[in-house]
């Protein structure tokens, strides 16, 4: 058994640690810059770089459409991409629970390799720690990334302007719904898979349409609703949404209906919210429809001068109401 699981010895820094690194990580992350020294030495080709870090814990660590490895690459790749930065290099740090199956660790590393390759990013350094049984929940990963910002990209959460169109690159809430179902706490079964995806290609395609893109942000655990409130606050504008235009997968709608949840507040891991001038919006959406991860892209609303800091929803009976503010722990409302 001992050979098939991660043990405390694997984290002790000795021979077994080296074995784990070469057998699992080097095998998957191998590239010329992958370092055997204390730090990777990199050539950064230009002056503006984006630099970010993110920690990943998800239970369960594997789910429909991905696992924590894929997630840990996508999260950091997408954060860089949202700044108009081409992801270049990443590091990853693992905290693994004693007894974690070695074959699962391999699967996680393989998913990271595949996703990094797709995003065009190189993993150049890493760290492995093993924690005693029960001290962590199976496996935690932290990734850090550097990207080169394109000359023509100037985006920020503060740049949304009245009149901008609000675009979402696909149907909302799929990742959150997938995790909810994977935990199997509510006995619900639905054919939903995570939207988890690396979105550099999607961002790059936007700039083939126009450089005039004001905001790009990836929706993560707070869902698209949280992003909209963040941007309204940062840019000191209002946002008006048309409820009927927000793309939601029918099965996600069904699950939300069962549990009284709002899809706009379910997590996404492969969706961008884009703010761009109204006259460019349709061309952007048309371009997005050609992309692998943005086939359901849609214009969902506009930026307004009034209602600063608020997100207003145009409802199906032709009335306007506020989108409720993002809340805390998602708890199903049943009775």
């Amino acid at each position: 058994m001992a050979e098939n699981t991660v043990t405390l010895a694997h984290g002790a820094g000795g021979k077994q640690t080296s074995e784990l690194i070469s057998k699992v990580f080097k095998a998957h992350f191998s590239n010329p810059e992958f370092t055997a020294d204390d730090a990777a030495v990199l050539n950064i080709p230009q002056d503006r770089i984006a630099f970010t870090t993110d920690g990943f814990i998800v239970s369960p660590f594997e789910f429909n459409g991905g696992n924590i490895g894929k997630l840990s690459i996508c999260g950091t790749v997408n954060d860089l991409s949202c700044m108009g930065a081409k992801p270049m290099y990443m590091t990853c740090a693992f905290v693994i629970e004693e007894g974690f199956p070695m074959d699962k660790l391999e699967e996680i590393a393989a998913a990271m390799e595949k996703t990094a390759k797709e995003a065009g990013v190189k993993i150049v350094a890493g760290d492995t720690k093993v924690a005693g049984k029960g001290q962590v929940d199976k496996v935690f990963i932290t990734t850090t990334g550097i990207g080169c910002i394109m000359d023509n990209a100037h985006t920020s959460g503060t740049y949304a302007k009245p009149g901008d169109a609000v675009i979402v690159t696909g149907d909302v809430g799929r990742h959150g719904c997938t995790i909810l179902l994977a935990r199997d706490e509510y006995g619900i079964d639905a054919d939903v898979d995570s939207d988890c995806a690396p979105l550099w290609g999607t961002v790059e395609s936007l700039y083939t349409v126009t450089d005039d893109i004001h905001v790009i942000r990836d929706a993560t655990r707070g869902g698209v609703g949280t992003v909209l409130y963040e941007i309204a606050e940062q840019s000191k504008v209002g946002i008006r949404l048309n409820a009927a235009d927000i793309p939601v997968d029918p099965a996600v709608k069904g699950v939300c209906g069962m549990l009284g949840l709002e899809p706009l507040y379910l997590a996404c891991e492969g969706r961008l919210v884009i703010f761009a001038p109204q006259d460019k919006a349709q061309a952007i959406v048309d371009k997005l429809h050609e992309g692998k991860y943005s086939k359901n892209a849609a214009i969902i609303g506009t930026v307004t001068e009034d209602n600063v800091g608020r997100v207003v929803m145009e409802t199906e009976i032709g009335a306007q109401t506020l989108l409720p503010q993002p809340g805390g722990e998602l708890l199903p409302r049943i009775c």
């Binding site: 006995g187 619900i188 079964d189 029918p250 069904g254 699950v255 209906g257 069962m258 409302r333």
Partner: peptide, 28 residues
């Protein structure tokens, strides 16, 4: 007080029904 969900019955067995609401399935 009472969130309700309209759903289609897929199958019934021993007092339990499998229902389908837009693709979300559950035994009730």
């Amino acid at each position: 007080m009472c969130v309700g969900l309209s759903a289609k019955v897929v199958s019934v067995k021993d007092g339990t029904a499998l229902i389908d609401a837009q693709g979300a399935k559950r035994e009730v």
